[in-house]
Design a protein around this nucleic acid. Structure first.
Lengths: 252, 252
DNA sequence: CCCCGTCTGTGAGCCGCATTACCTATCATG
DNA sequence: CATGATAGGTAATGCGGCTCACAGACGGGG
């Protein structure tokens, strides 16, 4: 079975964390300012933090981190998008989350087993910076609000994960697709010639992986939505023609 | 549709938080010591905390908190067991988690939307204590390790929730049941006359709600496992006869 | 330009499981 | 002891969605 993202694991990899900074210090601080994690900190504090933070770019298809990876770090997405997914023994993928600017993902023991068995792959060229557990610990000691921000972040992820469990348990593929498209629309929506577009390239396989169905079933579901003039899809671009109808399907 | 837990919402409710303490101060501290949240704190610190913490008991079937509930608190389970579940518009339940001693559940805005749409119900008589957001904030400021413990706790919950999403997406009812029974065995297992028992009373409806299937399908699945001498079930007690076979089913 | 790899669309067959419909067993209660 | 409520068992039926098998479309590179 050929799976696009899976294949890409053998493709471009991440540059080593010690590479020279790609940007000016000021730009770096500007980026940090947009990270939820650091909400409420002063410019001077951000500057201090930024000096210890290695930045790295990750090409499309590159893995930011994967289960085999044993150096413990907390990664922060500064630019681009990173897809988190799990891989079943027989090669099926379930996409858990799309992270964009300001979102974080951690692989460290004292952060629990958050990333056990989870892959993180750049779906757009991404700029990533990272902490070691020690740095994070020091940061929390100096700025308790960072700890609180992490708590808030994890709570959000947990809430949406549990909502998703209910959806997977009880809803049909069509409902799951509608509900996922509504979510993508809320996050990445932009006006299109007609209706609203989703600002991301998504193959049908990728959409299928998000809702835990097969590519074929997804194709027929899209066809059915197309016939009803609710959704249009052409070369990896999704356009929602009838937002209300879609919301109706999503909410049952 | 009559659902046991659902019906119980109209049954016994929680006592008001202002009731007289049920136990001596020392017992209270002993209980606090077993809460992961407070790992690493001294007896004096625990004593201080315990004085501000209201304790309350919650009878079987009572709701600790439910979506309508708008006073923001963080609840800590001291004794007994609390089931977290979501309720679909058509009355189906999905059990997300069984909390026991030391585990926490929060409904507060700065903890994110963790409890949006989640019910928390005592399945055994439970002893619960709770914080307001202010108290929690002060606690974290004074003892940063409390914040770190919350982060660790949320990470664990998130990891298991995401694992569960994969299971729901790709596994059959039999595999899901096996994998849930293995988990219950690890948490609540005890030696039985033959095989290992699960130390909890569970109706087939309750098991079905844990894996997102119907009661009928669960019954036939249990029958099939019984024929194969893997699992036995009689009046709400599950006994695992062949642990290895069960693990085999769970792991695919 | 053509070719090849990736992506998309569709149909046939099959099976898992939700639903519906009963029936029995057990137990508490009047 | 009769009654009703709750739990457990099983079988018939229908359908949603997975799998398999192709066939067309598209796009980038030699």
């Amino acid at each position: 079975m050929l799976r696009r993202f899976f294949d890409r694991q053998t493709g471009p990899r991440m540059e080593p964390p010690t590479g020279p900074p790609l940007t000016e210090d000021e730009l770096k601080i500007g980026l940090l300012r947009e990270v939820d994690l650091f909400a409420g900190m002063t410019a001077a504090q951000l500057r201090e933090i930024s000096q210890t933070l290695p930045m790295q770019t990750c090409l499309v298809g590159g893995l930011v981190t994967s289960p085999g990876d044993d150096d413990e770090r907390l990664y922060i997405v500064k630019r681009g998008r990173v897809r988190l997914y799990r891989l079943t023994p027989d090669g099926k993928q379930l996409t858990l989350e799309i992270l964009d600017k300001g979102r974080i993902v951690g692989r460290m023991s004292w952060l629990g087993q958050e990333l056990a068995d989870v892959y993180a792959e750049a779906v757009e060229e991404a700029l990533i910076c990272s902490f070691t557990p020690n740095e994070l610990q020091r940061l929390i000691d100096r700025f308790p609000s960072v700890g609180v921000n992490i708590i808030r972040y994890l709570s959000d992820r947990l809430a949406s994960s549990e909502r998703e469990r209910e959806v997977m348990a009880f809803r049909s593929v069509e409902q799951r697709l509608a509900s996922r498209l509504v979510e993508l629309l809320d996050r990445f929506g932009q006006p299109a010639e007609i209706g609203m577009g989703i600002d991301a390239r998504l193959t049908q396989q990728e959409l299928a992986d998000m809702i835990g169905t097969s590519r074929e079933t997804l194709a027929t579901t899209i066809s059915s939505l197309r016939e009803r003039r609710i959704v249009e899809m052409q070369n990896q671009r999704v356009v929602i023609l009838d937002v209300d109808a879609l919301r109706g399907l999503a909410e049952r």
